[in-house]
Design a protein around this nucleic acid. Structure first.
Length: 340
DNA sequence: AATGATACCAACCGCCAGATG
DNA sequence: CCATCTGGCGGTTGGTATCAT
């Protein structure tokens, strides 16, 4: 048995809103509020619209202090970094950008930002030319590649070995872990960040202290694919020959030694927990999935700069401890156990 | 100038979770 | 406890504008 429709579809107007409809809705809500019932609202006003449509119109267009278009570079950076960290949770991302709606950000990402990043990367790729052969160390049949492929071809049941992830830290379905991830994207919790460093030192005693800086945010999405080959444990066995090879022309030794191994492992765990969350980022790694080289993955340095900029901006007005947004985020993630 | 391709974005659709009776 | 309703969310669609040929 299907659900009853929220409104009489046959007697409801659809399509673009007229200025008269806008005026009616706006003046009523400004005077009386929504009354806590969107479904009943259009009847009160005399609008032949679905309540959901009224709600959407108000939230995305009529509500005061709404900004449209003209995204700044800082906003771009925030969107990018949050998308990478939490995926397409537009409402959460929108909560970090005052005046922006989730719909706006979603559209902006899908139509411009994604292409902008990809376009830039393609240009640089072309500039590098064919002469330079990149040695991608991520094998096409690696565990993570199977996971990523599965995320894009859900009709094919993935054949996956047991998750070899051995980190004792909580995973992404844990508040602390989320906090830490956000911290590393530019949050303020330096105490926790320091804690990560201590755990890292304990976990990988062979790492040269000078290679692990607590302030380093410079990981890239490519580090996801790199860490996903589970080369991190190599650090246990080889104290000085931790060779990660190159991805997309970037020496991953530099990436990892200058970055945060623990973060890479954490992101790695996200992939295992939730491969679907990588949807929309295929242009970062489809080459790896397809085993066709390192053509389309976003340039490491570029993503670094984006993330660094985001980190800088977040230090000013990013997540704060106990914020409503973070709480919402924490609660919200329980609603999507890997199916979105 | 005409036509097709592409980009953009407002709005819709369907699903999910929480509230309520 | 169950069924139903509503709000909220993310994905997708379709109309319009702009660009390229």
């Amino acid at each position: 048995m299907g659900r009853a429709p929220c409104c009489d579809k046959a007697n409801v107007k659809k399509g673009p809103w007229s200025p008269e409809e806008d005026a009616k809705l706006k003046s009523y809500i400004e005077e009386h509020g929504t009354g806590g019932n969107w479904i009943a609202l259009p009847q009160k006003i005399g609008l032949k619209r679905c309540g959901k449509s009224c709600r959407l119109r108000w939230l995305n267009y009529l509500r005061p202090n709404i900004k449209h278009g003209g995204f700044s570079e800082e906003e771009d950076n925030i969107i990018c970094s949050l998308y990478i960290s939490i995926g397409s949770r537009w409402s959460i991302i929108a909560a970090q950008l005052p005046g922006r709606t989730d719909n706006d950000i979603k559209n902006y990402w899908n139509t411009r930002l994604k292409k902008k990043l990809l376009g830039k990367q393609r240009k640089e790729k072309q500039a590098r030319g064919r002469a330079k052969q990149h040695s991608c160390t991520v094998p096409a049949d690696s565990v993570v590649c199977q996971h990523l492929a599965a995320a894009y071809e859900p009709q094919l049941p993935p054949v996956l070995p047991p998750i070899p992830y051995s980190n004792q830290e909580p995973r992404f379905n844990d508040h602390t872990s989320i906090r830490k991830l956000l911290i590393k994207l530019g949050g303020r919790f330096s105490d926790v960040n320091q804690m990560d460093l201590e755990q890292l030192r304990l976990q990988y005693p062979a790492i040269d202290e000078s290679l692990v800086q607590p302030t380093a945010y410079n990981y890239s999405i490519d580090s996801v694919s790199n860490s996903s080959t589970h080369q991190v444990p190599l650090l246990h066995t080889t104290s000085d020959a931790c060779h990660f090879g190159t991805i997309n022309g970037t020496d991953m030794n530099t990436m990892f030694h200058g970055g945060n191994l623990n973060l890479a492992a954490e992101i790695d765990s996200l992939i295992y927990e939730n491969p679907q969350r990588l949807q929309g980022l295929e242009f970062f790694y489809d080459d790896i999935v397809n085993g066709t080289g390192c053509g389309e993955s976003i340039d490491c340095g570029e993503m670094n700069s984006l993330l660094l900029a985001a980190a800088a901006s977040n230090n000013n007005e990013g997540f704060s401890e106990g914020s409503t947004t973070l709480e919402e985020f924490t609660n919200d993630k329980m609603r999507y156990p890997g199916t979105h």
